[in-house]
Structures are given as C-alpha cells and as structure tokens.
Amino acid sequence: MAKNVLQHTITALVENKPGVLARVSGLFARRGFNIESLAVSITDDPTVSRMTIVVGGDATVLEQITKQLNKLIDVIKVIDYTDMAVVERELAMIKVNAEPKNRAEIMQLVDIFRAKIIDISDRTFTIEVTGNVAKVDAIESLLDSHGIQEMVRTGRIAMMRGPRTP
C-alpha cells in the first residue's frame, strides 16, 4: 500500500454520534474505493471525533468524495492532507517468533527502530513500534524472516506541522 502513488490522507472532524462512521465509510464504498486505513477517536472536544482516512484512488474522484463528505450533516470539516506538510504516525504491534538463538538479533533490531518489546513468551516477542508508514513497513519486512505470528496496525494518524489546526 505504501507503493501506491495515488494514496491520500484525509482528515474529517465529525460529530461524535452513532452512525457517523457508517455514513462516512458508505461514501467510499459506494464508489468502489477501498479504505486502506481508518483511525477514529475523540478529540480535545468530546463532542467531536476525528477520523483519519487513508485511501488510494483517482484524484478527481477523491475530490468528489471529499466534497460529498463535506455535505454529510454530521461532518464538521474535511481536509485532504495529501500535499500538505504534516507529521504522521502509525503504531503497530507485531508478535514474532523468537527462538533463543535469534533473540539477540531481534532485540538489536528493536533497538535500532526505537521499538519496544512489550510482551515475551518462551517462543515469541510482542513488539510495539511507532513511526511513519515507511518505518513500520521496514521493521515488518525485517521481522518477517523470523516468522510473524500476528500483527495489528492502528492505521495512520496525521497532524499539520506548525501552529495551524484544522
């Protein structure tokens, strides 16, 4: 997914109400767009939720979707972060095979990526890593050779650089 050149990061501030997620995701589904990642949580204002949506697709169709998103009554504001200066992060938890002979190597890797081992068993490590998508992809591919048992990623969240807010 990181290789998709047409990937867009869209942020939507929405009313924190039931059904809003269905309204938003429906707009994408109806046009045949697959949402690559979606992160939703409340903001500093508990009546407002923030959605960060990563989606790939044709720019004109995405512009149309952004306009349609803006039309939803429960959507307060929509910003396409694609060409803006933003900091973006994603958190992943990766459960990887950790045979005694490989443990040192994996721990070194964790160190280099400034990741953390948050759980340990006789056969596995569970690693927490935070970073941009490229970094999470990189550690994932390096750990892959040891055998990843399970992985979960939060999806991307993003914020504009500097003092500006949506």
């Binding site: 059904g19 309204r23 429906g26 109806r30 939803l72 009554i73």
Partner: peptide, 14 residues
C-alpha cells in the same frame, strides 16, 4: 431503515 436510506436521504435520524 436508517441504514437502508443512508445513501438516499440528505440526513436521517433514529
């Protein structure tokens, strides 16, 4: 019905 009419209403309420 709110789910069914999601794409054909300007807005709906339960």
């Amino acid at each position: 019905i709110t789910g069914i009419t999601l794409p054909i209403t300007k807005h709906n309420y339960l």
